[in-house]
Each structure stands twice: as C-alpha cells, then as structure tokens.
Simulated assay, not measured.
Amino acid sequence: MGVRVKTLYFSMGSMLSMFVIMRITSHLSGMDIPLPIYILSMMFAGIMSYPFYVLLLESWEKNQRLRKELEQMVAHLQRKADVDDLTGLLSRSAFLERAEAMLKEDQVWLLVIDIDHFKEFNDTHGHQTGDAILQIVGHVIRSVLRPGNLAGRLGGEEFALCLTAHDVMSATNRAELVRAGIQALGVEAPSGGMLRATVSIGLSPYRAGQSLEECLHAADLAMYAAKTAGRNQVRLAA
C-alpha cells in the first residue's frame, strides 16, 4: 500500500473523528448543527490533515528504508569481520570465539594446519601464486567440513579446524582427507607447469580443564613435530 493510499485512509479517519466530535458537541450543547456545517468541518479536517499525514508517512517509510539499509550494512560489515576474504574461512577472531563455545561439546578435536615451504612459493613464484595456494587450501578445508565443524585462517599460511563428535580415528581420517586433498590439487606457475603444495597437520583432543589456547598449543606442537619428521603428514599430540 503506497503513501498516498495510506494518507487517504488516515484523512478519512480524521473526517470521521471530526464528525464524531461534532455529534458529541451537538448533544452536549443541546443544539442541532446544520448538515452543511458537518460537511464543511469534515472536509476541512480531511484537507488540513492530508499534507501532515503525507509528510508523516513519507518520513516513516524513509526511516524504515534507512533502518533496513543500516541493518544490511551492519550484517555485511560483520561478515567482512568474521570471514577471511581470500579463503572463505572464518577469520582468526571469529574462529577463536566460536571454537571457545564448542569446547562444551563432546569429543572435540583441534587441528592446526600449516602449508609447507609457503615462503618459497611466494619468493619464487610471486604473491599471486601464494594467494592461489591459500585459496586451494581454503577450498579443500571447506569441502571436508561437516555440519557443526569450524574452520578458520589463523593468519598467514596457518589454519585451524575444530571438530566435534569425533573419536581419534575419525578425527585422524578427517585430517588425512585435508592433507591428501591439498596435495592432489595443483596451481599453475607463472612460468608454466603445475605446483603442488603440501601441509603439515597437528591434531589434539580437547581435555577437560584445558583452555582453548592450551589445546591449540598442543596441536601446534604436534604440527611442528610433523614438519620435523619430514612434512606432508598428520601428527597426533602427545
């Protein structure tokens, strides 16, 4: 319903209100008000109130549009803050905040993933190639996530996953899917040929009484153990 139609209804309401007021006035004063006075008064009420209702309704609808645009802008900015643009995964802050809440779930596992020799990719083939590798890693991680799982980019070439309802075998299998999926995909080098990235993954269960930082640290140590052992593998925290 447009502003003009709404205004017409409101003006008709003003005219009806004027009619009621005049009827009450005539009964209280004991005087009959002539019909032309009724008509003129009602017309006057409608004509005088029409511009007011137009302005009122236009202002209300404008405020509604502005409020909707503001809500959309806030949602967009929130998403920009929560999601890493390059990989489509959660940002570090968003991942840590949501993972903290997931520690109350059963059988929680944290994975820390680091791309092997990533600096060499950037130094040798340029940052565009490095960005392409980051995007591949993000794509593979998203493809293996199950409902209720979390994945985020902690920064640079380091990523993290938070898995729930996984025993040690299923969590390890999930980590192996990530590792093998990344190794299987290639990136075309600027000079020609295909480049393949590998990742080292550390895996740690959440233990009662641990903080999120402690569990992530354990997974991080396991990831470094995987690098020390030759990279491109999954290591379980001690």
Rank of each mutant, 00 (worst) to 15 (best):
Y50L: 04
M73G: 01
I47D: 00
T172N: 09
F19Q: 02
G130F: 06
H27N: 09
E213R: 15
V3G: 05
D131C: 06
S200C: 08
M102T: 06
A165Y: 13
N122M: 12
E71A: 12
G148H: 10
A175Y: 03
I141Y: 04
T129S: 13
V83P: 02
T7I: 02
A189F: 00
Q183M: 07
Y206G: 07
Q128M: 09
H127W: 12
M12I: 13
Q135R: 15
L96R: 11
L96A: 06
V187Q: 13
Y224W: 09
F121T: 12
G46E: 08
R235A: 09
V234D: 01
P51R: 04
W109H: 12
A238R: 11
R235P: 01
H166K: 12
I136E: 14
A171P: 10
E188I: 12
K227R: 11
L40I: 14
E58P: 00
I33A: 00
A189R: 15
M1Y: 11
D114C: 10
H76G: 00
D82T: 09
I113E: 02
T172P: 00
M223D: 08
V178R: 08
R231I: 03
N173V: 06
H125P: 00
M42S: 05
M42L: 05
R235Q: 14
E97P: 00
I133K: 10
L111K: 07
M22L: 15
S143F: 06
A175P: 03
V83K: 03
L86D: 03
L216W: 10
A75P: 00
A75F: 02
I37M: 14
D85K: 10
R207H: 12
D82Y: 06
